[in-house]
Design a protein around this nucleic acid. Structure first.
Lengths: 112, 112
DNA sequence: ATAAAAAAGTTACTTTAAGTAACTTTTGTG
DNA sequence: CACAAAAGTTACTTAAAGTAACTTTTTTAT
């Protein structure tokens, strides 16, 4: 059984994007540098997994980590050029979602 | 903690694509209808998970299942219009991969 | 000087998803 | 009638993600 007749580069790109949270992390960083806590708050990702993902993305040259010696010290995460290059993919996903995803139920705590 | 300030439609689209194997299944179906076994062979996905994914994609109206009463009976999976509409996303992922993914090591069983 | 607070993680533990391989079902051919 | 092929399914193992409490560093308030 050949594990892939599919283009290995394409497969690699898909592997990055289909890892849980990765696409959302990149998407959020496309709107500008972000701090750790703002990402956990906005995305609803746990600190444990966000920390893991950011390290992986840093190793892949997609994200860079910036220590800002303010007080208290801030760590800012931002995209490298490679990271920014995901923008057209995100735009297509966004376009697709506008055409094909029905209005998502808001799932409120059923107010009165 | 608000679980999402991000557009829920976008989030939903990302949820589809970031589920393991889903993007590759759609990608393969973009090249034409496929049978169950050809997908397991080409993608290296297990039957258990492929079966699960195909059912989900059918429920989402992305894939359709076609029973062909030949002998032995063949089941052909193909994309609906909604499924085909992923094509531009796949094209962008492919473009990205050509620019940014380095040549992937072939991982041969170190032949002579 | 000491206590509490805030940011950025990390650790230990639980739950869920995916991988593996053997088995079932249906139809057909020798 | 036994065997083969396709399409799954079942039971079980392994890996990934979720949860929540804890650590570290530095600053502000008492």
């Amino acid at each position: 059984m050949d594990p892939s007749i599919i283009c290995p580069r394409f497969e690699k790109a898909v592997a990055i994007l289909s890892q849980r949270w990765t696409a959302l992390v990149i998407y959020q960083l496309l709107s500008g540098p972000q701090r750790f806590c703002s990402m956990t708050d906005t995305l609803g990702i746990s600190g444990r997994v966000l920390s893991e993902r950011l390290k992986e993305l840093e190793n892949q040259g997609i994200v860079k980590r910036n220590v800002i010696p303010e007080t208290p010290v801030r760590i800012e995460y931002s995209l490298t050029e490679k990271g920014v290059s995901f923008a057209p993919i995100m735009r297509e996903i966004d376009k697709w979602s506008q055409s094909w995803v029905e209005k998502v139920p808001t799932d409120e705590k059923s107010g009165s």
